[in-house]
């Protein structure tokens, strides 16, 4: 029995992030046997055919339409590593500006260097004017810190205000149980207390 089609389907599915061999096989068999699943896949493919990645901000654009993320008027840009981080910030409902997806961090082990990041278009967006602040929402890891240093160097000549998200005490945590680094960061990055009373 020739399994060429199944092998080809599994290989294609394995190219998707987070899909392992076993999962790819299960999805492949489902697509071969289940009409509803196949209809859903057709819909995905036809939707994708109407979109392209945005060359400026790393989001996506619908054909003939301006980018829903960077196409409008925004004075604050929030820089994130990837789509998952963007969703994390969106879920807070605290940010109303535009995003910029870097597509990675400086990480030579993964083969990512500054020139591989979607950073030049960020500088161009800032230089185009109208941007008052760039928020760097990048992880507090060695890769995140190296990327923050790189972006700082890249954007310094533009004069834009560059900030990074605070590293501090998680909600509901007690200071006595937290590690020294977290408490130290929270002290260093403290914010002014507002009265909270109505005027």
């Amino acid at each position: 029995m020739d399994h060429g089609i199944i092998r080809q389907l599994v290989r294609s599915l394995r190219a998707l992030p987070g899909v392992n061999q076993r999962q790819a096989e299960r999805i492949a068999f489902t697509l071969l046997q289940d009409r509803t699943a196949r209809a859903a896949l057709d819909e995905i493919v036809s939707t994708l055919s109407l979109t392209d990645p945005c060359p400026r901000c790393g989001w996506f654009i619908e054909r003939e339409q301006p980018c829903a993320n960077c196409g409008g008027e925004h004075s604050v840009i929030c820089v994130v590593e990837n789509f998952s981080d963007l969703l994390g910030i969106e879920r807070t409902g605290q940010f109303a500006g535009s995003y910029h997806l870097l597509g990675g961090l400086i990480a030579p082990l993964e083969g990512t260097l500054p020139e591989d990041l979607n950073a030049e278009p960020l500088r161009e967006r800032v230089e185009a004017g109208g941007i008052a602040e760039v928020i760097l929402a990048l992880p507090a890891t060695i890769e995140g810190e190296a990327t923050i240093h790189y972006l700082h160097e890249l954007l310094a000549p533009t004069g834009v205000t560059l900030t990074r998200i605070a590293r501090g005490i998680p909600s509901g945590s007690k200071v006595e149980y937290l590690d020294r680094k977290t408490v130290g960061n929270a002290i260093a990055e403290r914010v002014k207390v507002s009265s909270g009373l109505s005027e």
Binding site: I106, P114, I142, H149, Y150
Partner: peptide, 24 residues
Amino acid sequence: RFVKQKSALLKSGRSGGLTHLNEA
């Protein structure tokens, strides 16, 4: 982790990012 990242960079023969990793 920095040692691993920097070592991979130096072995790759590429130089972009060295200053930034060092700074971190």
